[in-house]
Design a protein around this nucleic acid. Structure first.
Lengths: 187, 187
DNA sequence: ACGCGATAATTAGCCTCCTAATTAGTAACT
DNA sequence: AGTTACTAATTAGGAGGCTAATTATCGCGT
């Protein structure tokens, strides 16, 4: 989340002042918004720094996690289109990431025999073991970042964030059995 | 904040399951972390989309805001080094942004007469008016994103986020007069 | 005055993202 | 069988990040 990681966020009092020239400015909204962006960016950068120690980038890691069966510890092949959809990026981006992951021997490409337009991306054994070497540290790193928050604060945070970012269908969640539909996410 | 904007975040119940294979995983920390990243990314992308309508990127916008005197509505020249420091990016990044902003006639470069190693970047009148054309919509867009939150929730959110992201010197804040040290931030 | 180390900006080269254009393969309809 | 329409992936070209290497200028000590 580049180039807005201001060292100093404006103080609430300063925002109140600025309203004089900028009547559209909502000080409390602005404060919440800027703090959200900064906290998100900082968390992101910390993970990025950790992954970089293992020659990984967030994109590479996310892509590999999407190919990883968390329960079985095996590879779950997927097409570039499916990966792009799950990761929320353009297909061309997946092509580029797979290029470098393939070069490093972490994934392989294979034509889908049923429809030769499609490719199937697989984690190699080296890819699986690389990932499993990274995961414990990654989890510890996440836990450390949230360590300052109590269980209550974590719950409150999630609740408030979900009011902002459209949890796509909040009503539908209640009806579905959470254990049946294991989410296809990375961590 | 690229390539981790998962469509579906793992459900808390799913995380509890995963702990069996991954004992380092702290489910509540993971949930809070992923929601933070997603909310930050979504807010960022919405702003980015708004700015793009005005032929702006977050980087260009941030840079111009750093050159803009919010009270007087005029240009406040600054060196690339100072801009890099305030924006939290590398100097080379500033060079690139200034290149394109200069090409578009929004800023100018000028040698500092006192030290010819330094450049001073100025907003042009066109830059000022462009910025002022964008600001009202930008503020409205921020307010709209936070509209679902009550005043209380905004305060709580800011408080919790500040426990995570290192507010650099929380103790020092209390002593300083907030109105004297107007923050040098963009909004 | 002259050179030497420090500092400011730029350049070069890489990665990750994007959109738009291209290539390859499928399917469906004459 | 051949055209046509669609879909999947890749390529091409651009922007914004980064680090490391270059270039220009300054300031200081001799």
């Amino acid at each position: 989340m580049p180039l807005l990681m201001l060292k100093d966020l404006p103080r609430y009092e300063g925002l109140l002042e600025a309203v004089r020239r900028h009547p559209d400015l909502d000080p409390s909204a602005c404060e919440a918004y800027l703090n959200l962006l900064r906290a998100g960016d900082e968390a992101y950068r910390q993970s990025e720094a950790f992954l970089a120690e293992h020659n990984m980038s967030p994109g590479r890691f996310t892509l590999m996690m999407l190919l990883y069966d968390k329960m079985a510890g095996t590879s779950v092949p997927a097409t570039p289109a499916a990966l792009a959809e799950k990761a929320g990026v353009a297909r061309a981006t997946i092509t580029g990431l797979v290029d470098t992951l393939e070069r490093d021997g972490l994934v392989t490409r294979e034509h889908d025999p049923r429809d030769r337009r499609m490719m199937l991306i697989h984690l190699t054994p080296k890819g699986v073991s690389t990932l499993e070497g990274i995961l414990p540290g990654h989890f510890q790193q996440m836990a450390a970042q949230m360590a300052a928050l109590s269980q209550d604060e974590r719950k409150t945070l999630v609740r408030i964030l979900n009011k902002i970012a459209g949890s796509p269908a909040p009503a539908a969640r209640i009806e579905t059995d959470p254990l049946v539909h294991a989410s296809p996410s990375t961590y």
